[in-house]
């Protein structure tokens, strides 16, 4: 199973920092997501694409989490050499993260 099977996502940017939301399609899967999609696992999955730390904020009311990722855009939208200067496509990448769910 992949993250895209349980959640949807959108990237936002401010300077060289992006946030990627992870929102459960069904709120009853929130706890599973909370267990498997951590700051550490997200940082590992994004690999060399992001250089800075990853911070996770939890929104149980919404069945959602917000990942704030530093040094993610080679300098930010106004000066980045990246094709996708906003990092908007990184939400699609994160949704490909494999989830190991034990039955």
């Amino acid at each position: 199973m992949k993250l895209k099977d349980l959640a949807h996502s959108r990237t936002g940017d401010k300077g060289d920092i992006i946030n990627i939301s992870v929102i459960a399609f069904d709120e009853k899967n929130y706890q599973t997501l909370q267990k498997l999609v951590t700051a550490t696992s997200v940082k590992k999955f994004l690999g060399e694409m992001v250089l800075g730390e990853v911070i996770r904020y939890e929104l149980p009311n919404l069945g959602a989490m917000n990942f704030v990722i530093h040094k993610a855009l080679r300098g930010g939208v106004t000066r980045s050499l990246r094709l996708d200067k906003h990092g908007k496509t990184l939400s699609s990448y994160l949704l490909e993260m494999p989830l190991e769910i034990k039955n």
Binding site: H8, S9, R10, G12, D13, K14, I17, N19, S21, I23, F25, Y57, L59, L62, A64, N66, V68
Partner: peptide, 16 residues
């Protein structure tokens, strides 16, 4: 609710 959730967190860092 889903379109609202995505937009609520758009360009937000600490939601509190």
């Amino acid at each position: 609710p889903a379109t609202c959730k995505e937009q609520l967190l758009y360009e937000v860092h600490d939601p509190s």
